[in-house]
Each structure stands twice: as structure tokens, then as C-alpha cells.
Design a binder for these strands. Structure first.
Lengths: 193, 193
DNA sequence: TTAGAATCGGAGAGCTCTCTCCGCTTGGCC
DNA sequence: GGCCAAGCGGAGAGAGCTCTCCGATTCTAA
């Protein structure tokens, strides 16, 4: 992910420590400041020269990807796990709310889900497609079960999800994001009156 | 708004024409590219040197404000006009949908409503407060009339409004924004089951 | 027509950001 | 302890942005 991996010989002990520290600081910086934070600033916070950070991660994107890839993959995995749940409506709404709530704690994750300059990981990554696929599957099942409005397509739900995250970007209280997700879920529900 | 006004003598004829042209081009550029467009780029599109544009508008903010202020004020005026409407629920949802729909046609308006670096016009402007005030009034009346969930506050509605506009930023079809607003309005409606 | 004020154009100062380069330092094996 | 490859640091290149400055140009009143 960062640079070399299996084939090369292991990193020297100090380099490995430094690499971990960079990841740690980058994680914190991204969570609080989002994708717009500068590479220089991350190096500064970690107490390294910028050259050192570039040695471990060849571009800004590579560093951000190393930090965020795992979190995005977890969303996809959760979605897949719920794809066979008994109550399709509950699975869909549960996943939606969960993604919103977890992402809302991480500024960079919000930026990424909102499709800023980073949604596309390295060329060839299927992550974005996997995410959309998991969502589409949950949506389809929930609609067949009569739990969700029929006129919504996956792209609509993705937009609604992004919409819920704008509150986070404005540093509102955590509860506000949850309330927004609740309103939106209510709006997506099939009308049974 | 731009620079001088009453007291100074009128602009020379060519300067007045140029000023109009700058406003015209800036309007188009902001609508299509949003607040992130550079001043240089606007000057280039208008076919002027950057110095000329600065002569008419002392900062980037001043130019953007000259283009966008009127549009924002219209939203506030519409809201105030609806504040005495008979059907408070209809007034609230109508205004919400209308703001979303009109703003969605203008990238810069979306950016501004989303509260980017520009929501605050020049210091002392009460526009942001006026907008929030008009919204709060409509919301309060709609809630008293039993048309809107009681647990929502003005800030929540503002966030939901912003949320509807993220779809526009991603250049989705116009219909998608309307559909989002519809879902969100449904979610805000008081449950009458 | 012409003087002179008003206006224009765009080079460039000064800032931020990403990323490179290379001399200096340090870990780890003998 | 000593060697030297691995790793570090940060100056600086190059690009983009906002905004300034002033010589060149154009309008307009007399």
C-alpha cells in the first residue's frame, strides 16, 4: 500500500517505527481535518521532515489510501454480511444509519464518501464499485420486501447518504447527524398509510 | 457593491460596459464552476486582464457577492412572503423545495448554502441571519400546525437543505435533486399514522 | 483636435501546496 | 569499533492562487 511490500527486505527497525508513527498521526489528522489537509502539515505534526514521509508514501493519495482503505472496506463487508439478513428493510436502514454514524466521526471519510477528489483510489481499485454494489443489493432486497420507496435507485441513496454527512463537515453535534439520518430513513420508507 | 457608488462621478462609458461584462461572465462561471473558480480564470473568460477586473471589484469576495447577493436575498424574501400563508405546512415544504430546486441550478449558490468559505458576506451583513430567521419562522408555524416533526430545529432543516444540494455538486441529473428533496420533505413530515 | 484624466493589461510579488534531490546521520552486521 | 547501505531532513523547483503596481492606451470635455 505505502510502497514496497513482500519482495523487498524488511524495513530497518527505526524506519518501521517511523512509518507507524506517520500512519498514526495521519489517521488523527485526517479524522479531524479531512482530505484537504496538506502533506507538509502531516509531516510537521508527526515531527518528520517532509522527505521522510514521502519516502514511506510516494504521494499524498498513497498515504491517505493507506489510512482510509480499511475503513471503507469495512463498510462494504458489513453491507455484504447484511445482504442475507431476514428482515431486508431493517438490514437496509441499519446499514445506512451505521455508515452515516461511523463516517460522521471521521472528517476524511465524509469527504471521501462525498466523492471529492479522492473517491477513486488507485486506478484499478474496485472499492467504489464494491461499495455501490453492496448498497444496491441491500436496496433491492428492501424494495422487494416493500420496506423502501420503489422510485429510489442506488445513486439516489448514495446522494442521501452523502447529504447526511454535510452536517459533520460543519462540525455540528453528533446527535444532529443521527437525527438527519433518521429523517432521511423515514423519507425513504415506503408509505404504508 | 462592487466599489464606489453614489458619491463618485459616474463611470466612463467603456468602463461601465466592461463592468457589466465582468458581472455577466462571472455569473455564468459561478453557476457552472462554483465558488472555487479562480479570479484569473474569470478575467480570462471575460477577455480582460486581471487588473481590470480588480479595478471593478477589489477582492474575489466582492465580485462573488455582487453576483450572488441578489439571489440569496430572493430566497429570504420568498420565505417572508410565505410566513403568513394559510397552510403553514404547505408554505414550509414549498419554500424548502423551491430553494433546493433553484439553488441546484447554480453551483456557487450550492457552495454558499453549504456554508463554505463564503457564507459570510462582508462583515456586518445580516443575510445569513435573515435566511436562518425566515426558515425558523416557517418551521415554527409548520410545527404548530402539526405538519412537521416536533423534534426538528432550524439548524437541522438547514443541514437537510444543504444535504439535498450535494447531488448537484456531483453533476447528477436535475431530477435527482428534486427526488432527494421529496424524500427529505417526507421524512420531515409529522407522522400521522 | 488635443490635453489630461480615467481605464486597461499583465508582469510579478508573495503565498501555499506537492513532490524531488542529495548531503548528512544512523542502525545493524562483521 | 568500524563500515556502509538504509534512512532522514529540509531547501527548493515548479505550479497555482490572490492581489498590486505602473506604463500604455483610450475616452471625453473643451
Amino acid at each position: 500500500m505505502g510502497d514496497d511490500h513482500s519482495s523487498a527486505r524488511p524495513l530497518r527497525a527505526d524506519a518501521r517505527r517511523n512509518r507507524e508513527r506517520v500512519l498514526q498521526i495521519a489517521q488523527e489528522a485526517l479524522a479531524s481535518d479531512g482530505l484537504t489537509i496538506s502533506f507538509d502539515e502531516i509531516a510537521r505534526r508527526a515531527g518528520f521532515g517532509v522527505g521522510t514521509v514521502y519516502r514511506h508514501f510516494p504521494t499524498k493519495e498513497a498515504l491517505f489510501e493507506a489510512v482510509l482503505l480499511g475503513r471503507m472496506e469495512r463498510f462494504v463487508a458489513d453491507g455484504r454480511a447484511l445482504a442475507t439478513a431476514e428482515d431486508a428493510g431493517k438490514a437496509f436502514f441499519g446499514w445506512f444509519s451505521q455508515v452515516v454514524e461511523q463516517a460522521s466521526a471521521n472528517q476524511a471519510l465524509c469527504d471521501m464518501l462525498e466523492g471529492g477528489p479522492m473517491m477513486t483510489f488507485r486506478p484499478g481499485s474496485t472499492l467504489a464499485a464494491d461499495f455501490a454494489g453492496a448498497l444496491a443489493r441491500l436496496l433491492d432486497r428492501a424494495q422487494r420486501a416493500g420496506a423502501v420507496r420503489r422510485d429510489l435507485v442506488a445513486e439516489d441513496v448514495l446522494d442521501l447518504l452523502r447529504g447526511c454527512l454535510v452536517a459533520e463537515r460543519r462540525a455540528r453535534a453528533r446527535g444532529a447527524v443521527v437525527k438527519m439520518a433518521d429523517v432521511v430513513c423515514d423519507g425513504m420508507r415506503a408509505k404504508t398509510r
